[in-house]
């Protein structure tokens, strides 16, 4: 059997395991997608097709949910998520300059992933932590008061 077919088969088994773990119920579609996302860091097309088959839902319904929520991604994401806040408070305190520095360091635009699949850069409009502005979140950890000078240091970690 060719390697890609093997990969798809193991993916199908993994998805089936996740679906049965969540109860195999249509109502738990979102938690199933969350589990798949944490497994692969994104939602592969074949996994969505498998979920649709397992739950006996039209594929578009699964696809609609996957595109509705910003937490889900249909494109492969890097190992580390870098989220730059561009809310009003962060903007005023120089988030744009900091974002430019992050882009320069990683060599990508926002919404993109580095070629070595290590970093994905995203922007959000407010994290609600304006006292820490300007703020960067890396893998769920909040780094406050980040100027362009500090960007390199925290990205190295």
């Amino acid at each position: 059997m060719p390697r890609s077919a093997n990969k798809i088969k193991s993916q199908c088994q993994k998805v089936a395991a996740i679906v049965s773990k969540c109860g195999g119920d249509r109502d738990s579609l979102i938690s199933i997608l969350q589990d798949i996302q944490s497994e692969y860091r994104y939602l592969p097309e074949d996994s969505l097709r498998e979920v649709a088959i397992q739950l006996e839902l039209p594929l578009i319904q699964v696809y609609g949910v996957a595109t509705f929520f910003k937490a889900f991604s249909l494109k492969p994401r890097g190992k580390h998520m870098v989220t730059v806040c561009l809310g009003t408070a962060c903007h005023v305190r120089g988030a744009l300059a900091m974002l430019d520095e992050v882009k320069r360091q990683l060599g990508i635009e926002s919404g993109e992933t580095t070629e070595d699949m290590r970093f994905t850069l995203e922007t959000v409009n407010c994290l609600g932590a304006c006292a820490l502005a300007p703020i960067v979140v890396i893998d769920g950890k909040y780094h406050g008061h980040i100027g362009p000078g500090k960007v390199k240091k925290i990205l190295k970690k």
Binding site: L48, L57, P58, L59, I60, Q61, Y63, G64, T67, F68
Partner: peptide, 19 residues
């Protein structure tokens, strides 16, 4: 049938087919 549906949300919401 359920061949088409809404994708995205807000200003990018539109009627489309999956993939």
């Amino acid at each position: 049938s359920g061949g088409i549906g809404f994708t995205g949300r807000g200003t990018t919401r539109m009627v489309a087919t999956a993939f």
